[in-house]
């Protein structure tokens, strides 16, 4: 789009039919206008690019090329309330993502593990020593009684890849750590062919210096919906393995007020060398 042209070389001008722009002041004005146009046209893209970067960094803040974590998950529903302890191993190769979640307690769940390789999800049941491949019909079921569904696990969100960002609002305020940060509220619309079930997501992040931290993620079924069906909030920003990350996240569902699932990272290490043998059925048992 950007032609190489010099205001002062008539031959280099783009042709407008038979006529060439002759007068030099016109040429200069034209080139100035062109330059402004380029600037203007670049800015939204530039803004979008930086928005994209913001989304990417906030979304992947708890991930690296690989990670290993010990987490506890509190689930409160109208029927029960419990707390799980689990260890999560993750490795993201260029080909596919691999995750192993092993539940360490309490009693009824100790030994259950979930293995995800790409899009394939498998469960291990220690009571029967049986590995079950998760079929389509099970995708809607809740994972381990939490507010995450099996589908959530299979399709870990890739907000930066599957969605197109646009800025809703921007403000400066104090973040959790008392620092002055820029809070961005970003509207994410799914890319046309992305296999994601949400019609719209509103993602709020703050940026301070070089750090981008997610605050809250609202999930809407349809693009035009007013109220989100699911809300994920991020808290407890602290330093873990040399990075500042939100160590707690909580998910609530609009149709079930009073219920929540809360994940808290007790230990987290990034970019560790997890052997491939960790992501096998044997490792599940």
């Amino acid at each position: 789009m950007i032609h190489e042209f010099s205001p002062c070389d008539p031959e280099s001008f783009p042709r407008l039919g038979r006529y060439r722009v002759r007068f030099s002041w016109l040429r200069c004005a034209a080139s100035l206008m062109a330059f402004c146009a380029i600037l203007v046209s670049l800015s939204p893209a530039a803004r979008a690019d930086s928005l994209q970067a913001l989304v990417q960094r906030a979304d992947r803040i708890l991930r690296g090329k690989s990670s290993a974590a010990v987490v506890h998950m509190d689930v409160k529903t109208h029927g029960y309330q419990r707390s799980y302890k689990m260890v999560i191993w993750e490795r993201d190769d260029s080909t596919r993502e691999r995750t192993l979640v092993k539940i360490l307690g309490p009693t009824s769940w100790r030994g259950y593990s979930t293995l995800k390789i790409g899009n394939q999800l498998k469960f291990y049941d220690p009571k029967t020593n049986h590995v079950q491949a998760v079929g389509n019909s099970m995708l809607g079921d809740s994972w381990m009684g939490s507010h995450f569904s099996n589908d959530d696990l299979v399709k870990e969100t890739r907000l930066a890849v599957d969605y197109t960002p646009s800025l809703i609002s921007k403000r400066v305020a104090k973040n959790e750590l008392g620092q002055s940060a820029t809070f961005y509220r970003i509207r994410l619309t799914p890319k046309p062919t992305a296999p994601v079930v949400w019609g719209r997501i509103e993602f709020e992040v703050w940026q301070h210096d070089d750090l981008v931290v997610p605050v809250r993620c609202d999930y809407f079924t349809k693009v035009g919906d007013k109220n989100p069906v699911r809300i994920m909030r991020f808290y407890g920003v602290k330093e873990m393995d040399g990075r500042w990350v939100p160590s707690e996240m909580q998910i609530t569902v609009a149709s079930k007020p009073g219920e929540y699932t809360r994940l808290t990272y007790d230990k987290l290490r990034f970019d560790v060398d997890i052997p491939a043998s960790k992501f096998t059925e044997q490792a599940m048992r």
Binding site: G135, P190, T193, K222
Partner: peptide
């Protein structure tokens, strides 16, 4: 509205999904 379809290809292939 958009919907996501989850399918299981035959054999041992991974499940796939499309919008």
């Amino acid at each position: 509205d958009r919907v996501v379809l989850n399918l299981s290809p035959p054999g041992d292939a991974e499940p796939t999904a499309g919008a």
